Simulated scan of single mutants.
Amino acid sequence: MRRTLHLTTLVLLACLTLSISAFAGDNMITPTLESVEAVYQGKPISIYRGHDRDATLPEIFQKTDRGCPPFCVQPIVAIEGVETIGELEVLGYLKRIAQGESNIMVVDSRTPDWVMRGTIPGSVNVPWNKISRDSAGTFETPSEADTFDHILEDEFGADRNAETGEWDFSEAKTLVLFCNGIWCPQSTANLKTLVGIGYPTYKLKWYRGGMQDWVSVGLTTVQP
């Protein structure tokens, strides 16, 4: 009887200790991952999860009724062959970039007004309307086409044959695109544009959850 009571007491104490340590300790990303080192605007930055247990979503991400179209729920697969990824995979790409892999880019597809409210450390802002074409597959003005070509060459690492006009993506970067969340069509539009001109699908990744999911789990954000 005494032994049973003793064992019961030990179990209760162990549970209480675990409970207290869970609240008192660090808010880990995973059981074995506390933080990820990234580089943002040339400076190192650590990505953690927030430690405020009373934290809530920013007001801009609390709204649920946004109107469809254009803010329709996006499919789990944006384009066949383009991998849909989550937060841990994004963190993995950010870590690789910080370690010197220059053939990867995490792309914030949102317009600058959204980016100024907070973005993922290590991402680069390439607004969706700078590279998305109209329904006919063209740009409205020559300047838009020039901007698109500039982004493909100088930002994404593609090369265009001056004689044939054809794009060579053999040295192009792997792009990880995201926008505001599963209701945001901006990164999806960019994926369609890029695949439409021949960008290899295996070099395109889509973080479907976007900023809304990122902040919902308390991961670090930065304001440019």
Results as ranks from 00 to 15, higher is better:
residue 117 R to E: 13
residue 137 G to L: 02
residue 132 S to A: 15
residue 135 S to K: 12
residue 100 G to L: 05
residue 136 A to Q: 12
residue 112 P to W: 03
residue 138 T to C: 08
residue 88 L to E: 15
residue 116 M to S: 14
residue 133 R to I: 05
residue 121 P to E: 08
residue 119 T to R: 09
residue 113 D to N: 08
residue 102 S to M: 06
residue 123 S to M: 02
residue 119 T to E: 14
residue 129 N to K: 04
residue 90 V to H: 07
residue 129 N to D: 15
residue 134 D to M: 07
residue 100 G to E: 12
residue 87 E to N: 10
residue 98 A to T: 13
residue 91 L to A: 12
residue 126 V to P: 09
residue 83 E to T: 09
residue 91 L to V: 12
residue 79 I to C: 06
residue 84 T to E: 02
residue 83 E to P: 08
residue 88 L to V: 11
residue 108 D to L: 07
residue 104 I to M: 01
residue 122 G to C: 09
residue 113 D to W: 00
residue 112 P to M: 07
residue 119 T to F: 00
residue 82 V to T: 09
residue 93 Y to D: 13
residue 97 I to H: 03
residue 133 R to T: 05
residue 92 G to P: 11
residue 95 K to V: 01
residue 139 F to R: 05
residue 134 D to S: 14
residue 133 R to W: 06
residue 129 N to T: 06
residue 129 N to V: 02
residue 79 I to T: 12
residue 104 I to E: 02
residue 106 V to T: 03
residue 100 G to C: 08
residue 79 I to K: 09
residue 117 R to D: 10
residue 118 G to T: 07
residue 88 L to D: 15
residue 134 D to C: 09
residue 89 E to V: 11
residue 128 W to H: 14
residue 106 V to W: 08
residue 80 E to P: 00
residue 130 K to F: 14
residue 131 I to H: 03
residue 129 N to Y: 13
residue 104 I to H: 00
residue 81 G to M: 06
residue 139 F to K: 01
residue 101 E to R: 13
residue 104 I to Y: 04
residue 132 S to I: 09
residue 139 F to C: 01
residue 116 M to A: 14
